[in-house]
Simulated scan of single mutants.
Amino acid sequence: MSRHHSSRSSYSTTPVIILYDTPGHSPQPWAPNVWRIRFILNYKRLRYRTQWVEFQNIEATLRSIKAPPSSVHSDGRPVYTLPIVVDPTRNPSRPEILSNPSNIAEYLETYYPARPVFPEGSRSLQSLFVHYIQEIFAKPLLPIMVPLSAHGLPERSQPPFYHSHISNPLPPGPQRELAWLSVKEQFDFLSSILDKNSLDGDGVCAMGHSVTYADFALCSVLLWIENMAPHDGWARVREWNGGRWIRLRDKCRDYMDVF
Rank of each mutant, 00 (worst) to 15 (best):
Q186D: 03
E185V: 05
P68F: 03
Q28T: 03
N100A: 01
E135I: 01
L128R: 00
V85R: 00
M145V: 15
F161D: 00
Q158E: 01
G233E: 15
A235Y: 06
H4T: 06
R45E: 12
F129C: 02
S70R: 03
P68W: 02
H25E: 08
S220E: 04
L190A: 06
F55Q: 06
R45T: 02
S2E: 09
D254K: 06
D250H: 04
N33P: 03
E135K: 10
E177Y: 02
Q51N: 05
E109Y: 05
P69G: 06
W224S: 01
F137V: 02
S124Y: 07
L141Q: 13
W245G: 14
W30N: 09
D254S: 13
S74C: 07
F187G: 07
L148M: 12
G24A: 09
L194V: 07
R244S: 08
F137P: 06
D75G: 13
R94S: 04
P23N: 04
N103A: 10
P95D: 11
P69H: 07
V237M: 14
D200F: 15
D87E: 08
S2Q: 03
I84E: 03
L223R: 03
S124K: 11
G208N: 11
L218G: 09
P83C: 05
W224N: 07
R45M: 02
L82A: 07
Y111E: 13
D202F: 10
F187C: 09
L62V: 03
R249T: 01
P78G: 12
N42L: 01
H131P: 00
K139H: 04
P154C: 12
I193Y: 09
L181H: 14
P68V: 02
G203L: 11
I246Y: 10
D200I: 09
W224A: 05
D254R: 09
I17T: 08
S164G: 02
E59H: 04
Y255L: 01
S70P: 01
H73K: 14
T212D: 12
S210E: 15
G173L: 10
V211G: 08
H131D: 15
A105L: 11
D202H: 11
P88H: 09
S74T: 10
P154M: 07
N168P: 00
